[in-house]
Design a binder for these strands. Structure first.
Lengths: 106, 106
DNA sequence: ATAATAAGATACCATTAGGTATCACATTAA
DNA sequence: TTAATGTGATACCTAATGGTATCTTATTAT
């Protein structure tokens, strides 16, 4: 029950952190640069970045007095691995799924 | 900034809830049946099921005095939509998965 | 009719989470 | 050298989270 995916799911469970990942997808940023995009203190942003790092979603490189945060898309793989479990069931449950969706739309 | 995906990400952020989804992938279960698989009270399990329902990951049907919990794989689509943003950063594995699901739903 | 079973509802508790303010330290600029 | 900048670290606050216990109601079985 080691649950390797937990730090990743945890990291993505917060909207601010998901937004940070999208920001970093466009370019690397220092903590101050990320903070400039949000209405919260640097300390709060730093906590989010730490959690993203724990989840393997970003890497951090020290450049002078700055900490450059860099997106690590491979950190999303635990999520994909987890989702793949349901591949088999999508086929099996296809009929029920169609019915359920169609009924919901009425 | 309505963040439609938040209830889904939130639902999957807890290991117990992820395990429940896998359980329900094998068969529908009443609350008591789900509870029998975990070392916690029925009230705790019920809370998890409510959060999974809020996240659109399960549906609940009343049968007599029982509440039958049923996996709703389509509830995972918000996650896939969100992940799709990162397609540019790796291969097309994710997009293939998502389009396969959507094709099945039609 | 009575007892057993399934679940809803509420109050409560300890811990975690997201946030702030503040101070110290390292690096760069003047 | 001195001042400004970027960050680390800590203490603290409030709300949310995951859990329990307990009581009530609805349904099913004897």
């Amino acid at each position: 029950m080691t649950d390797i995916a937990q730090p990743c799911f945890r990291a993505l469970s917060d909207p601010t952190r998901r937004e940070i990942t999208r920001l970093l997808a466009t370019s690397d940023m220092s903590i101050a640069q990320v903070t400039a995009r949000f209405d919260m203190t640097r300390a709060a942003v730093k906590k989010h970045l730490t959690i993203l790092s724990d989840g393997g979603l970003i890497t951090v490189k020290t450049v002078g007095r700055e900490r450059i945060n860099h997106l690590n898309p491979a950190g999303l793989l635990p999520i994909l691995d987890w989702l793949e479990f349901f591949d088999a069931f999508w086929d099996d449950r296809l009929a029920a799924l169609k019915t359920a969706i169609e009924k919901d739309m009425k």
